[in-house]
């Protein structure tokens, strides 16, 4: 073969040096760009955390709830369950892909169905996790400088505001659209005022204030009785329960912002993954790929689904473990 002929063969197209179809390759490169998006978010989280390294909330104290087990402190158990669900649905997905290689329609259908169920359980769990986080549990007082003061007893156990503060009568009504200016409203009023918290603190000798600052053992600093009263009286500004984009009873509001943004973005990926899986599921049932004699479409959505699992592995580490 002369050089001219060889060149003609090389450059005239039709070669597949990567031995992957166009669709699959593009799915890979989409995943690369999406991975970079997520790592941008996680690296930004890392930046903020390093910036406030001495006062960042401790995840073990934030995510301690498990559905149906009220009042028990079980850090990480539920997230570990969510992780397992997602890995499990990844497994059923890869089994569906494998069954597709054998052109086994019945098995592909079953495994795709199980994958969708796994995805739905995960999204539901995440919604529950959000709801719990937004509702909060112990409540705290925000200072003028935006820091959070929490309450503990002398043994270091957390004390909820409702356990030592008595709500007085107040005439201050929440400003809603229907009773004030129609184009403005405000967030629900906190159940207590700072003055009531001060009174509650004065009458409960065993309650102390805990600041955001971490000591050398990596635990939050607990103030002395006098310091506690002084801090609340001088700096207390707002009673905070739960978390939203502005305030966060667990500590830095940035923690809540990143939590909502990153797990929200991931949850959105899971949701769209479920939708795409459902579409492909119906295509499988209708026999589209059976007629095509190729289940490569299942493989492509499979790649996306595994990627969602992959991202969760990192979110799990950086939000809940580290």
């Amino acid at each position: 073969m002369s050089t001219a002929v060889a060149e003609g063969k090389t450059w005239s197209g039709g070669n597949e040096p990567l031995k992957a179809s166009y669709g699959k390759m593009m799915m890979w490169f989409f995943i690369v760009s999406d991975a970079l998006t997520f790592s941008g978010f996680l690296a930004a989280y890392g930046f903020s955390r390093f910036k406030f390294i001495s006062e960042w909330p401790i995840a073990d104290e934030v995510f301690t709830h498990v559905p149906f087990l009220h009042g028990q402190e079980l850090p990480m158990i539920y997230v570990a369950f969510m992780t397992f669900i997602l890995i499990m649905s990844s497994v059923t997905m890869v089994l569906a892909v494998d069954a597709g290689h054998h052109l086994n329609k019945a098995k592909v259908t079953l495994y795709m169905f199980l994958t969708i169920i796994g995805g739905l359980i995960f999204v539901g769990s995440q919604a529950w996790e959000w709801a719990t986080f937004i509702k909060g549990d112990y409540g705290a007082v925000q200072t003028k400088g935006g820091n959070i003061l929490q309450f503990v007893d002398t043994d270091g156990h957390r004390v909820a505001l409702r356990d030592f503060v008595v709500a007085g009568h107040t005439d201050r009504a929440a400003h809603e659209r229907k009773n004030g200016l129609w184009f403005v409203d405000e967030a629900p009023l906190p159940p207590f005022t700072v003055e009531e918290v001060v009174k509650g603190l004065e009458s409960h000798e065993n309650v102390l204030v805990r600041t955001q600052l971490l000591n050398e053992h990596g635990e939050k600093t607990v103030l002395s009785r006098e310091e506690s009263l002084k801090q609340i009286k001088e700096n207390g500004k707002l009673v905070v329960e739960g978390a939203n984009l502005h305030v966060n009873e667990y500590g830095s509001p940035l923690f809540a912002d990143f939590f909502f943004f990153i797990t929200g973005f991931h949850g959105f990926h899971v949701f769209s993954g479920v939708v795409i899986n459902i579409i492909i599921f119906f295509n499988v049932v209708l026999g589209t790929y059976e007629r095509r004699k190729s289940y490569e479409m299942v493989e492509k959505v499979g790649l996306y689904w595994h990627f969602v699992d992959l991202v969760w592995v990192f979110v799990f580490t950086f939000f809940y473990l580290v």
Partner: peptide, 14 residues
């Protein structure tokens, strides 16, 4: 690259 840059900068700001 991204992690190095951002964490380095975060530590500096701290």
């Amino acid at each position: 690259y991204l992690i190095f840059i951002l964490l380095q900068e975060g530590g500096y700001v701290f």
